[in-house]
Simulated assay, not measured.
Amino acid sequence: MAITRHQTREKAFQTLFALAGNPEADMSTLYDNVLEDVILEQKDGIDVLPTYLETLVSGVLAHKADLEIKISQYLADGWTFARLAQSDRIILEIAFFELNYVDQEIVPAKVAVNEALNLAKTFSDERSRKFINGVLDKALN
C-alpha cells in the first residue's frame, strides 16, 4: 500500500522539524529516518521517495522567506513569526505552501486547512490547534 497524502504531510513535518534543529543534516538520511516505518514503492529494487514528500519539503524550504511574510500578516498584533513555537511554524508553512503553491485542483484550500489541523492534533496541543485554525481562517477570508 502506498503512503497516503496525510502520512506524507506527517513525514514532511518530521523532516522539516529535524532540519530546523540541524540545518546541515543530510537530506537522504533524514528521509530514511522518517520513512523507516513506511513501505515504499520500489523501482528496480530501490525505494522510491514519495514525490509529494519531496514537493512539500523542497517547496517549503525554497519559499521559506515568502511563507514567513505571508504567515506574519495574519498573526495578531504583537506576535512575530519568530515567536511562534517551532511545530506551529512548520505546520503553518506546510499549509501556506499548499494554499499558495499547489494547484487547488490537486489540494483544495479546505483540504490544506483540514490537514494542517490534523498535523496540529498530532504534533501540537489544543491551544496551538486553535491558534493555527485562527491564522488559516484569517488567510482564507
Rank of each mutant, 00 (worst) to 15 (best):
E54Q: 12
Q86G: 04
A65K: 11
K130M: 05
V48D: 00
Y52T: 09
E54H: 04
I39L: 11
F17W: 11
A18I: 04
V113W: 02
A112E: 01
P108C: 08
T29P: 02
N22W: 08
V102M: 06
K121L: 07
E68V: 00
F131P: 03
S28Q: 11
T29M: 03
F13P: 13
S87V: 01
I91E: 05
I69S: 09
E36G: 01
K110A: 11
D88S: 15
A25R: 04
I132L: 10
P50S: 10
E126W: 07
A18K: 15
K11D: 12
V102F: 02
Q14G: 06
A20R: 14
G21S: 13
K110W: 05
L84H: 12
A95C: 03
D37H: 13
V111T: 11
Y31S: 06
L99G: 04
V57F: 07
L67P: 08
L53F: 10
E105A: 05
D26A: 03
K43V: 03
V102I: 14
A85R: 15
V111K: 05
L75C: 03
L19Y: 03
L61K: 15
L30N: 10
T80R: 10
D66Y: 06
N100W: 07
E54L: 13
Q86E: 15
E105I: 04
L16N: 11
I106W: 01
S87T: 09
Y31A: 11
D103K: 07
L56C: 09
A95V: 00
Q14H: 08
K130I: 02
N100D: 11
T51H: 04
L35H: 10
R9G: 01
D26R: 03
E36Y: 12
N118P: 00
A82C: 03
L56I: 15
I94L: 08
L61E: 13
E93L: 06
A25W: 06
A82E: 15
E68P: 00
A62W: 02
N118M: 14
A82S: 15
A112P: 05
I106D: 02
K64P: 01
E68T: 04
L35F: 10
A20K: 15
G21K: 15
L99M: 12
Q42N: 02
N33Q: 15
D37N: 13
T8E: 08
I90G: 06
R89Q: 15
D44I: 00
F13M: 09
L67H: 09
L19N: 05
G59L: 07
S58C: 01
Y101R: 06
N33L: 15
T15V: 14
I46N: 06
K130Y: 00
T15G: 13
T80E: 12
A116H: 10
L19F: 07
S124A: 15
D44S: 03
N100I: 01
L117Q: 11
G78V: 01
D44G: 00
E126F: 12
P108I: 06
A109D: 10
V48L: 06
F17H: 14
E105R: 10
A112R: 02
Q86M: 13
K64T: 05
V60R: 09
A65M: 07
K64L: 06
D44T: 00
E36Q: 15
L16R: 07
L92Y: 06
D125Q: 14
A82W: 12
I39R: 13
A112Y: 05
